[in-house]
Amino acid sequence: MRKIAVFLQIGTIAAVIVIWEEIVVKGFVDPLFLPPPSQVLYSFATLPALIGLPFYETLTKTLLSFAVGSGLGIALGILIGSGIFLHDVLYPYIFGLYSIPRMIFLPLIVLFLGIGFNSTLFYAVLHTVLPVIIIVIGGVRAVDKRLILYAVSVGATLTQIYTKVIIPAALPSIIAALRLGIIFSLLGVLIAEMYLSLSGIGFLMQKLSFAFRSADLFAVTICVAVIAIVISVLLGEFQKKIGERQI
């Protein structure tokens, strides 16, 4: 079953590429919009020169906003998740913010921080912190109360309850939050770059799109998508490892 499935997966991807090539070569669509895969492949050769600097910029911003956003999100999530009153007061606000398109705040951020690195970073942090907080709150609140009661019964201090019970017990959801967080950081950075039109991969993609450089755009899109998938798969494996240990 697994083998057949892998075979079919490769077959599907191959079929998509073949059909795509055929459609363009047979002249069903304008190669200006849909370049044939062969041309996209050719674009990959020039890709390093094209995305070198923007890639570095986007990577820096993503990692920075991920570090700040997930760190802040985990800390706040543990704090809010473990306090009953705090949780009940703040959760509707957090969830409310999470459930509206956050991009509407981007112009406001630009108003205060100007167009550039700071506003991109601020927006990406906002983008990361909300889902991370929500997942961590969920994990902390799902911790079996008896585990905490037992720790209290053997005389654990408040710090010990956090470091020895709550955090280890909530670890799987913290890892899950990190996995989602990195993707949300990247998403936030790309959105901000596209909106601010100043630098980075997002800006580059927008520029290529408006300049009808479709083959280059395809190459960049595929490249970013593959990187995101690889990150997600690697973190997924890590998550599985942690999950196994916990059970």
Binding site: F33, L34, I183, F184, L186, L187, L190, I191, M194, G202, M205, Q206, L208, S209, F210, F212, S214, L217, F218, T221, V224, A225, A228, I229, I231, S232, V233
Partner: peptide, 14 residues
């Protein structure tokens, strides 16, 4: 798992 906005420039193009 791909950040959705990655697809948008292509969609604008198409």
């Amino acid at each position: 798992a791909v950040p959705s906005v990655v697809w948008y420039p292509l969609l604008l193009l198409f």
